[in-house]
Write a protein that binds this DNA or RNA. Structure first.
Length: 376
DNA sequence: TGTAGACCTGCAAGG
DNA sequence: ATGAGCAGGTCTACA
């Protein structure tokens, strides 16, 4: 076990540029536990998408992000690589903003208004398998329950990680094999998963079957997903993702954006839909132009039967509108508008003893980002 | 082929 | 104290 003194490594990141208290709680990742006394975030992390997990801690001040691993020798190089990759630090957010200012001046030109939201402009590059399951849990659901469900999944089917020096034990995120071995739909239902219980079991089964069929049983689920999908055009990747139970267009796009690195994907949910209609005047009516566009998509999607069955063409046009407007990192731009629109709430803190609420103001009053801390 | 309802659960918001 | 309504949707059963 550790001596009680963590050896922290650090990386220069201005908090105005990237604020982990926003990014980790905005509803992208659901398994970071915040410790209000130490101001640290902790989670079990699959550092290289392999089969071993580390306990990772993160914290931040104005100029630096600090990171450490509680077990596995605190491998600096591995951690460093993971942090850069998880937060996608090599992507130049300032350059993205410059691009968006040119492409969408109406909504990005007033940078003083937008600037407070820069800190939330970060799409995390998460573990593919965990991302897929997390977002299956997310459908028609709220962040605090999604968070709870993700933790429950680890407790029910993951492995307890020894010596992690925490008040409550931490577990690995279960792989597909563990899920089908240990869990059933009724167990998940008893544990509050509701109708998503079935989707989780079916999805885990499908991954096991696919790996078997492809002769790739030695790969972890995430390695398999990357092997299967990486490099594919978006439409093919989405077709593959949509074939899973409980995965519709929104969940598939979240998975591809946050788990598979498809940065130009804008997941269209009720909020993005509302933004499109209200701020961009995307009509829900049926103009000739729109009918033409849909007819074109229908033709194109005949090659993709699952997509054809599950897609909503009106919403898909909104995705395409934003992709064409914002470009290669349109998914990141969407994160800014999403944060502005709904703010965020987060889940468990210190073993669910208390709860933290973080709110980003949404009024059109050019106000700065405000945060509210609420402790039960 | 397209479109209403149903669907688990927990929580805020308003009365 | 109580309970309708909703939450970053998806699935199924019908016309």
């Amino acid at each position: 076990m550790t001596s009680g003194v963590d050896k922290w490594f650090k990386i220069a990141v201005n908090i105005k540029y990237l604020d982990i208290s926003t990014v980790l709680q905005i509803g992208q990742s659901f398994r970071w536990v915040y410790n209000g006394e130490t101001n640290e975030y902790i989670s079990s992390i699959n550092l290289d998408h392999d089969k071993t997990f580390d306990i990772v801690k993160l914290k931040q001040d104005d100029k630096f992000m600090y990171y450490t691993s509680v077990n596995n020798n605190n491998n600096k190089q591995l951690l460093h690589t993971w942090v850069r990759s998880y937060f996608l630090l090599d992507i130049d957010r300032k350059q993205l903003f410059e691009h968006w200012k040119i492409k969408d001046p109406k909504h990005f030109s007033n940078l003083s208004h937008i600037e407070p939201l820069c800190s939330s402009c970060c799409i995390l590059q998460q573990d593919p398998w965990e991302t897929l399951l997390s977002f299956i849990c997310s459908s028609n659901n709220n962040i605090s329950r999604i968070t709870k469900m993700c933790h429950t999944l680890t407790e029910l089917a993951g492995d307890e990680i020894p010596n992690c020096d925490q008040l409550s034990p931490l577990y690995t995120f279960p792989n597909s094999g563990q899920i089908i071995k240990v869990l059933t739909e009724s167990i998940l239902r008893e544990n509050g998963f509701g109708y998503r219980a079935k989707y989780i079991i079916e999805t885990a089964k499908k991954i096991v079957d696919l790996k078997l069929k492809d002769g790739m049983m030695e790969l972890s689920d995430s390695q398999y997903l990357k092997w299967k999908i990486s490099g594919s055009p978006y439409l093919e990747a989405r077709e593959f993702a949509l074939a899973f139970s409980g995965v519709g267009p929104k969940v598939a796009d979240c998975f591809l954006l946050m788990g598979m690195g498809y940065h130009d994907v804008v997941p269209v949910d009720v909020h993005v839909n509302r933004i499109a209609q209200r701020d961009y005047k995307i009509t829900s009516g049926s103009s000739n132009n729109k009918k033409t566009q849909i007819a074109k998509l229908k033709l194109e999607y005949t090659k993709y039967p699952t997509t054809r069955r599950k897609i909503n063409f009106d919403l898909d046009l909104i995705r395409l509108f934003f992709r064409d407007l914002w470009g290669a990192y349109s998914g990141w731009a969407q994160a800014i508008f999403f944060a502005k629109e709904v703010g965020s709430t987060s889940g468990i803190v210190d073993g669910s003893v208390s709860k933290r609420k973080l709110l980003i103001k949404t009024e059109d009053d050019n106000s700065a980002v405000t945060k509210r801390i609420k402790v039960k």
